[in-house]
Nucleic acid binder design. Structure first.
Lengths: 188, 188, 188, 188
DNA sequence: CATGAATGAGAGTTCATTCAT
DNA sequence: AATGAATGAACTCTCATTCAT
């Protein structure tokens, strides 16, 4: 009935995610994470060497989940439009599901090179995944296209995070819009 | 030869910008800002009521400069393509000039509603400026178009901030690319 | 129309009294006293060498006024009972008139020997005045009697300071009571 | 051999009493209390939420000890004179034992309503205890009598605190004197 | 005489981290 | 492995005092 070591590791990570993403890094205290996880303060340090390290691991897990999910969905898609759709939907749905955890998207460990590396690699991996889709369609300058597409999506993220009344319908509308704009350009 | 009161206000703001943007909010100490500005610690509090307030004023000034500059350039542009070009160039050049102050773009006062309001309004104002350009060209769903375009640019920002070898040429290339992609869509 | 130097000295002392007695020594700022007196902060230091000194001078003036008034009233009294009455009335009326300035009676400069000296001397002088009255009636152990009488009055001070609904009638009742008790003892 | 949690709480309270009463509230630093108690600065905050709170708890403990002791002694007294004697002796002995901690009697947290409440209640409780003694002897206006008696004692406190050469004999003399004066009035 | 901008020492408080149990 | 009491470095902000104008 007691938690295994691995389970405790994950429980702490869950609590860290919940609190960091809701309140921000500096505003979240180790004591709060411990309490939320139902362990003692000292226990946190048995699994993570520091607050920074805990934040980094949490971030890594988040990024990995995001990319694993996307990568999984892409293998089940066939046409180009369908793939773009999946990317857009996955991207915006991710933020939609996290719209109550807005802090996570604005705060990092900006002075920690290792953390910047983690972020940088995530973006790189994400863009590479999208770049592969572009290349499979023989699009030139595939990387620039990939970044532009991701950027469009990233910007709609703001609507989600700041608009209280944002619904799934609004989300679908943006998915369609982004794909069409990317494929055909603006219609004048 | 001595500073007027207004000058001192700005000198402190300059120092705050330099340090906050280089090291981040929490990592910058009031004592450092004072030293950098060549005044005593207490003097900072004669001009700004708190560290948070100082950060907010600095942010406001930054945002205002960005928008004033853009708005100024847009009035001197004629064709649609030219306007898009000016927006893209202004956006990316701004970050290019600040590529050594990367911290500023990742950290804020995420728990301070007033600060979030400042950020939100800036984004709103920026998008509205771009939306006006879209509308002047009678483009439907002008706001969604505006956000998508800004998003593309925003994403290229990452290249600038993370790529040490990024040059003005790379920048111009992205400006052209973004405008063309936005107008015509991806070419397959 | 402008204040003379002596007037300014007194105006500052008045403001100091008002604020110190309403808010306490540490809670009152020099800046507030200056503002209340309608002078600049630096001006306070032209008349008083430090915050402590200002507090001491204010206290001295207060004590002097109290004793001058009492001494004046006693010369106009004839019988013993009448004199005791004047003392009691003067004592309690003084606190009654100051019942909105309760801070002054609880806070001092407890670490400043000079201030303690000022307080000590005031008490001494007051008791001596009352002792003289006792001696003029040939009462033995005149000083112990004097202190006991002052003590009775001092304690009724608490009623005045803490009882919001305390009236002049209550005051007169206590004056009469104290004099009778002192002269005849408790009635059993 | 190590302190229990409760012991540490009391050790800090003891140190707080020693320093606050010797030097005053504002003149005593938390760092000094910690050092005197043999703990780290932060430890003080594990037991008391703020400097103010620490001062309040110390005051409460002091007051309680005073009243408990008195109440205990009164139950063992029989005649009226004996009871008055016990009150006078307890009151003056208390201050006699504390004659090196004079600061405590002049300084409080005058702006803190909660602290004023604590003080007010203590005085109230003390007077009530004495009032009960008066009533048990069927004395009219028992409360006014009680306050007068306490006032006499309170004033002799000054002799104790300010007279370096004050001895136990002086104290006993004042106890006797106060009781006789209260019972019989001044002898002319 | 008068001003008030500038100073900077100093204090209370927080909280990540440690370590004896 | 787990605890949580104890630590103490570090930081923001205050305010009496000074002095150039």
């Amino acid at each position: 009935m007691t938690s295994t070591s691995e389970q405790k590791h994950d429980i702490i990570l869950d609590s860290a995610f919940y609190l960091f993403s809701t309140k921000g890094f500096y505003e979240t205290k180790i004591a709060e994470i411990a309490e939320h996880a139902g362990v003692a303060k000292g226990t946190v340090y048995l699994y993570f060497s520091s607050k920074e390290e805990l934040f980094k691991e949490m971030t890594r897990r988040n990024f990995d989940e995001f990319l694993d999910g996307l990568s999984n969905e892409l293998t089940r898609s066939s046409s180009f439009a369908e793939k773009l759709n999946k990317i857009a939907d996955h991207h915006l749905s991710y933020f939609y599901n996290m719209r109550n955890h807005t802090r996570i998207f604005f705060q990092g460990l900006n002075n920690d090179p290792e953390f910047m590396e983690v972020m940088f690699h995530h973006i790189e991996n994400y863009v590479n995944l999208v770049t592969n889709v572009m290349e499979s369609e023989s699009i030139n300058e595939s990387k620039l296209h990939a970044k532009a597409f991701v950027g469009m999506l990233e910007n709609y993220k703001m609507d989600i995070l700041f608009t209280k009344s944002f619904t799934k319908d609004h989300l679908n509308q943006r998915v369609d819009f982004a794909v069409k704009l990317f494929m055909n350009g603006c219609k004048r």
